[in-house]
Design a binder for these strands. Sequence first.
DNA 1: TACGACATACCAACCAGTTGGTATGTGTGT
DNA 2: ACACACATACCAACTGGTTGGTATGTCGTA
Lengths: 196, 196
Amino acid sequence: MTAKDKLLSASLAVIRTKGYAATTVDDLCAAAGVTKGAFFHHFKSKEDLGVAAAQYWGEHTGGLFAGAEYHRPADPLDRILAYLDFRESLLSAEVPAFTCLAGTMLQEVYATTPTIREAAFLSITDHAQTLEHDYDQAIALYGRPDCPNAQSLALHTQTVLQGAFVLAKGYGGPEVVRESIAHLRRYLMLLLVRPN
Amino acid sequence: MTAKDKLLSASLAVIRTKGYAATTVDDLCAAAGVTKGAFFHHFKSKEDLGVAAAQYWGEHTGGLFAGAEYHRPADPLDRILAYLDFRESLLSAEVPAFTCLAGTMLQEVYATTPTIREAAFLSITDHAQTLEHDYDQAIALYGRPDCPNAQSLALHTQTVLQGAFVLAKGYGGPEVVRESIAHLRRYLMLLLVRPN
DNA sequence: TACGACATACCAACCAGTTGGTATGTGTGT
DNA sequence: ACACACATACCAACTGGTTGGTATGTCGTA
């Protein structure tokens, strides 16, 4: 494992815990077990690492979701519900372990560091897009007449999760995320009605 | 207007724009038009100001919502819908002008500064509580059998708004907040059904 | 004259980034 | 096979500007 990988991997944990601005380059080096020289060999600035961390986060989570089981069900609504189950299964007791690096960074640096804002936001919208197909098919099959479109529902799904992470940081635990996912599930079940 | 008020007032704008960690004491003094001596006369540390800013935010928004028109309608569901309309009316083009100081600070310092975490979180839960009465009455009148309780709905309302603010920082505008409020409105209308 | 409300000048610690150097490949001509 | 040129990966020590915080002084008012 190269120093670059160690730094990127460590940055996920450290930045999610302390936030981007409060994280110092020395913090990252200490957590990664490398020296400052190695840091600036691989990243030309702290901002450069911030952008790389957001991209790394996107690839990291992208792989996690792409390889998950929730794509299995034949029915698109079942896949969406399985996605929500999967999101719940990712929750753990420690807040920094389940919250979103992209959301954290985005909220912090959106006005000051456009490069990081773009990279972090892209990782969120990219992930939202992976849900659109399933929503599209579910809407076609089960959507009520007043059902919003797939893009909007996919985005709203992420909105609810991001908001829940903020509240979870207040409570110090994941319970509120479970509750928000339950609301989302209920909303979807009211919009997408299986004939019976 | 005293230096303390100027600092608190300026802190709302500055911290919402740059975030708490990236905001320096000098930034705040410059924005407030006071000197550093004045700052440390009124606040014993930067953290102390952070706590005071979160409390000030709670009072500031508390007054805004308490005095708003959305309490007028006789029907509780109408009051809730009017609340959502009011939230929409607060949106403007500039992101820092409509986002939530408490949510921003909470996400940033939840693990590092418990005093600020508590103050910021309290301002969110306090505000959520002001909705519970209306939700309670609306549920009693119109709630479907599977309708969640008032506390949970009030909290979910804040969750959706907080998440929408995160996304808005990515888009650089309030459109996504409007869309999320529309989803929330639709969810509530499916849960709380007026007999007709 | 005592005290609250500021202002000015200053400091020690910290932080992003630099410098100069070492160790270990890696390709190339002979 | 071997020397040479060069590149990559990394390290330890340093620097200059920044930052939170302090020490001390001044002014108005009760």
